[in-house]
Simulated assay, not measured.
Amino acid sequence: MRDKLNDFFDGKVGDKPKDQKWLDDFYKEGEERFKKKIPPGFKDSGKESNDDDTHFYNDGLYYERQYGDLIL
């Protein structure tokens, strides 16, 4: 199943964020966009049900879930 997913997305996914500073700056922009209800993703603000769901780490980077749609 994983191989099928990898094949499907091969060549269709952009580069990962270059560093944590880039993500942190993007989150600041996201805050402003969410306050003004500018899509994409503003309806995801505060969507998590508990603290464990608000963020995750991947490849050394800290991601805030509420900004997932905006990042994509």
Rank of each mutant, 00 (worst) to 15 (best):
N58W: 15
D25I: 02
E31K: 14
R33H: 04
K43E: 13
E32T: 09
K4E: 12
G60Y: 08
K18L: 05
R33Q: 09
L23K: 00
F56T: 09
M1G: 13
G46C: 03
G46E: 02
D7G: 08
L61Y: 05
W22H: 12
S49H: 12
K16S: 10
Y57I: 09
D52L: 13
F34S: 00
N58S: 15
G14S: 06
F42Q: 00
D59Y: 10
D53V: 01
E29A: 10
G68V: 03
E64A: 05
S49M: 13
K35S: 08
Q66L: 02
K43F: 12
D52A: 12
R65Q: 13
F42M: 03
E48C: 12
D19A: 09
D10T: 12
L72P: 02
Q20P: 04
P40I: 06
G11D: 04
D44K: 09
F8T: 05
R2D: 15
P40Y: 00
F8Y: 12
F56M: 09
K16W: 10
I71C: 13
E64W: 07
E29Y: 05
L23T: 00
G30Q: 01
K37M: 11
Q66T: 01
Y62W: 11
G46S: 06
K21H: 11
Y27P: 00
S49G: 15
G30H: 01
G68W: 01
D69E: 12
E31L: 10
L61C: 07
L72T: 14
Y67G: 00
N50W: 04
K12C: 06
F56E: 05
D7A: 14
E31A: 03
D3L: 10
L5K: 14
I71T: 07
G11T: 00
V13F: 08
P39H: 06
E31M: 10
S45C: 13
D3M: 01
S45D: 14
Y67F: 15
V13H: 07
D24N: 14
D10L: 13
L72K: 13
D51H: 06
K4H: 09
E32C: 05
K16G: 11
M1R: 14
E64H: 10
L23H: 05
K35I: 02
Y63T: 05
D53R: 14
K18V: 08
S45K: 15
N6Q: 14
M1Y: 09
D15W: 09
S45L: 14
K16E: 13
I38H: 06
F26Q: 02
I71S: 07
L72A: 13
Y57D: 13
D10S: 15
P39L: 06
V13T: 10
